[in-house]
Amino acid sequence: MSNIAQRDAFWDKIYEIAANDRNVILISADMGAPSLDRFRKDLPTQFVNTGIAEQNSILIGAGLALKGKKVYVYAIAPFITLRCLEQIRVECSIMNIPMTIVGVGAGMSYQDSGPTHHVLEDITVMRSMPNITIYNITDSVMAEAAAEMSYSIKNTTYVRIDREAFSDIYPANTDFTSGAAVLKDDKDCYLIATGSMTHAALEAAERFEQRNLHVGVIDIYRYPINEDFLTDTLAGVKKVVSMEEHFLPGGLGSAVGEIILDNALPVKLRRLGISHSDGFCYKYGGRELIRRQYGLDKDSLDRKIEQFLRD
């Protein structure tokens, strides 16, 4: 198991692709990374720095894409989605001009930087628009695969990258085309998680297992959610808990709830995430401490999940 940063796994693969295809253009809104330094040095004609100007970065990207370029636009996640949302809406969604938007800092992974750098709304916002596919990255194996997939996808893709280097949970060469995966099987109850919370879900399931409580784990890494996959997997399942480091309205839990309602699945859903009443986070001292404010730390998760399972 490696623990390469998702960012490096993604950009290293893009570097490899770009070295063989001069039509691959990387637009950075003044974001750096060691893997980007190499890109800028070795492929200078394919690297564009717009400065801290996210609106322009999407517009320039759209123009380059119209000229036939494979465009990657990179910045901190809240800025490259929300600051330039209307550019994404008009160019990427309405006109369906394809590009890959790469945002680093999923959820609260810019831990001590405070609420301007946390992003708890982007999945809601980005999945509300047609013609946009979201990959909420779980580990570095998936990050590398997302880089490969984005190269051939024909519409706009938003790749949401966590700053934390988690241990890989997917083996090399995993096929990620289904958009979701059962990481631990169960017939009665599943934890359905996304991004960093998938790691928390697996750990929780492991702790429950030690106490002889069985619960499965599903990782949802692509939006819109693969509806067939979820309805098939949830056939006969009685309870599911959604887990996200994201505001509850419109996020993973909402998306799962929509599928449950639309298909009249006889399954109870409990959503764990951040409610608006919990507010923005000005706590510091690391991610687990921050999660404690929202009841998403290990102890709180265990308590809430167990209570729901026993109800």
Binding site: T45, Q55, I60, A62, G63, L64, K67, K69, Q87, V90
Partner: peptide, 20 residues
């Protein structure tokens, strides 16, 4: 229709033309 878009896209096209 929404303003402030076409100009930036035009610049992107112009940049692409220079690249090519």
């Amino acid at each position: 229709g929404s303003l402030g878009h076409g100009f930036g896209v035009a610049a992107g096209i112009a940049l692409g033309a220079i690249m090519d």
